[in-house]
Nucleic acid binder design. Structure first.
Lengths: 199, 199
DNA sequence: CCAATTACGAAACTGTAGTTGCGTAATTCT
DNA sequence: AGAATTACGCAACTACAGTTTCGTAATTGG
């Protein structure tokens, strides 16, 4: 199945995304102008819109490149594995956080991502699929730890992971508090050990 | 301190926000046109911009009206109090969720709020203050439960609340999963009881 | 070689957020 | 009463996202 007409210039995608990333890191989403981007990349606006139907789609592509691949490790020590995984997620969030307005604590590009997902059905579907995949990997890790007796048999794996990942996003997007390895450790401890006096 | 010049027409704020809310619920943030809003409200665009410096500021004002007052109850049963509080937060989120694109699961106006906070320093500061206030109330509730022995003495109250509130926001903004009373109960159980086999 | 097909660039165009300038209305202070 | 001050409406303006049109370039298939 060779495509019919003139092939796309594959160098364009890479070059545009590189320049767009630089511009977004420098001036944030609002400060990124499509006209300027096209000029700096040396292409016509029509060429950009053939690849990304809206500025939101382009921004999502930029943000996607900032996210880590987030590979999970399974050492048999669920506490250490969870801390490591959360730390990787936090690192990706902090990288996205930088791509926004310069001043103060801000969600940066994470906020743009959520807004874009809310505005465009296709972006929403895409990100939900992406996160479903990540969720599945984490749930499998938790399930293995449960089966080998590290975790209680009746635990709510979904709630457990939502709690930990959610707290990271909540801090970045809502309260503006920092997320780092120390916080990841606090989260895992709190989630695993619970808060009741005894049971 | 009586203000000097011509006083503002106080009816304008209410009327504009009412119409803006209706338009946003009907067509979402993108579908809300300032020119159209001004015309429907019977005011000039300059009058709108005197009150809300950007469309984002206006949208935030609209969303703020959709949030519940989220009063907290302290019955002495920390589990029930937490579930009730989380359910109130979830109700506000679901109301904001409606104010976005019609189709499918979407963060709706919650996403716009986060993006607006990232884009405008003043909005970011405002929302962070708002959430700091809410956080303080919840932390006080947890602290009282800890002091009367319902919760373990060495618990991490901040992590505990981040986990529960964060999971709600995570679902609404990222995974698109539903948030309701049943989920609030799962969250509280999971957070309070922990996931380890024994301690 | 030639037709069909797709990509590209250039330029004009539309719609909307946000600004500016100006005349006028409503209020306070002296 | 009159000056200073702030709000309002109106209309023209700028900037930018996104579209459209058209001429041209690169490729496949017959």
């Amino acid at each position: 199945m060779v495509p019919r007409g003139r092939p796309r210039d594959t160098q364009v995608d890479e070059r545009v995304l590189r320049i767009a990333t630089a511009l977004m890191l420098e001036r944030g989403y609002t400060g990124l102008s499509i006209d300027e981007l096209a000029e700096q990349a040396g292409v016509a606006k029509t060429t950009l819109y053939r690849r990304w139907p809206t500025k939101d789609h382009l921004a999502v592509a930029v943000v996607a490149r900032l996210q880590a691949d987030d590979e999970i490790t399974d050492t048999g020590d669920i506490r250490a594995d969870l801390v490591n995984y959360l730390e990787k997620i936090a690192a990706g969030l902090n990288r996205m956080r930088a791509a926004g307005q310069r001043q103060g604590p801000s969600a940066g590009a994470v906020g743009e991502l959520v807004a874009a997902a809310a505005r465009h059905e296709d972006i929403g579907r895409l990100t939900r699929e992406q996160y479903a995949k990540r969720n599945a990997v984490a749930l499998a890790l938790i399930e293995r730890a449960r089966l080998r007796g590290e975790l209680r048999a009746d635990l709510d794996a979904e709630a457990l992971f939502d709690q930990m990942a959610g707290a990271l996003y909540y801090r970045v997007m809502i309260t503006g508090a920092p997320v780092d390895r120390a916080y990841a450790e606090r989260l895992v401890s709190s989630a695993l050990e619970g808060s009741l006096t005894c049971q």
